[in-house]
Design a protein around this nucleic acid. Sequence first.
DNA 1: TTAGCATATCGATGCTTGTCAATATCGTTT
DNA 2: AAACGATATTGACAAGCATCGATATGCTAA
Lengths: 117, 117
Amino acid sequence: MATKSVKSTKSKSETKVCCGTARDIPLSKSDAAELALVFAALSDPVRLRLLSIISSAPDGEVCACDLVTPIGKSQPTVSHHLRILFEAGLVEREKRGVWVWYRAVPERLDAVASRLR
Amino acid sequence: MATKSVKSTKSKSETKVCCGTARDIPLSKSDAAELALVFAALSDPVRLRLLSIISSAPDGEVCACDLVTPIGKSQPTVSHHLRILFEAGLVEREKRGVWVWYRAVPERLDAVASRLR
DNA sequence: TTAGCATATCGATGCTTGTCAATATCGTTT
DNA sequence: AAACGATATTGACAAGCATCGATATGCTAA
């Protein structure tokens, strides 16, 4: 255990536990586990590129069939990654006929970004 | 291949390739790989809690010796996770005598957060 | 109904990763 | 010098993951 030289600055940590600006309150184990799942979904280059392509689509949505070729992986692999992005809440999907269209969920991205301060 | 019903909205994508606001330009493979490394560092609950504890420290720094007990993992495991956070540029460390003090790197966190839009 | 295409799921495989015990490294103190 | 404590590294193992081929599901057109 290391003890700070002097500085016993009674910083009672002005954290309002409820309904206030809960600043600098360490993550609980369950919160950390939940957050880690989202970051895990973002921790793969293929998924980041998928998300990037989908986010930058002129119409805000992309057909899954248009993702396989630019990604350069097999169709099952792309489908697998899209599934992970979907389950992490980072994209939403809509089936129209034979095709499935994917859209980004910017609120989700903002929420994650704000957790990084 | 799916083709949009109508909507051939000549959106030439006002992306300035150089020196402008490079909006909605899909990530390159190398950029995606680099970003994925940072997210991988954030994709573990233990590392998120470490980062949280360090970030919320009153003095902005925490001795490694004060991290083992609250995390509840073995000392080598905690050391391993701190190493990954360090190599991702998320924390910096300073050795003082026998102890090693860890600080968060908020600029790095901001940079990552901004990549999420 | 049958054929054909888009997408998802399954099963297998090789690689990565989280974890710990044991050990090494390096200050400090006696 | 030797002993001790803090931290990092090593080696090993189990669990998880990315990937693909093969297959299943489901929609549409003939």
